[in-house]
């Protein structure tokens, strides 16, 4: 929980760089669809930013398993994660 709060605080400080988030997000949309539909890979649009940040930090630290997402997350620093959370929050959640 402390980790999540810290990340949110830091994310707040760095948030707003949606353009950087949009550039980074181009990597995600090879797997996660921007329209929020999901079929074998979960939707990541329209999340509250804190939960999104917590999920990526959990992959990065290894608390959540997934070879794929751990490798993605290890390449992201806290500023990157905050930018991505801000970017994907601007898209509506899964339609169905």
């Amino acid at each position: 929980m402390m980790a999540i709060l810290a990340a949110t605080a830091q994310g707040g400080a760095m948030a707003g760089d949606v353009e950087w988030g949009a550039y980074l997000a181009a990597e995600c949309t090879t797997c996660h669809r921007r329209d929020g539909s999901a079929d074998g890979i979960p939707a990541i649009t329209g999340w509250p930013e804190a939960g999104f940040v917590a999920a990526l930090r959990a992959y990065r630290g290894g608390a959540r398993s997934s070879q794929t997402m751990q490798t993605v997350a290890r390449g992201l620093d806290d500023g990157d994660i905050a930018a991505l959370a801000a970017y994907f929050a601007t898209y509506p959640p899964a339609a169905d």
Binding site: C31, R34, G40, T68
Partner: peptide, 17 residues
């Protein structure tokens, strides 16, 4: 395998969607 189906849907949407 399920993940690969998600990727197929994802990349083709990213190319042609």
């Amino acid at each position: 395998f399920a993940e690969s189906i998600g990727w197929y849907r994802g990349i083709t949407a990213d190319m042609f969607g």
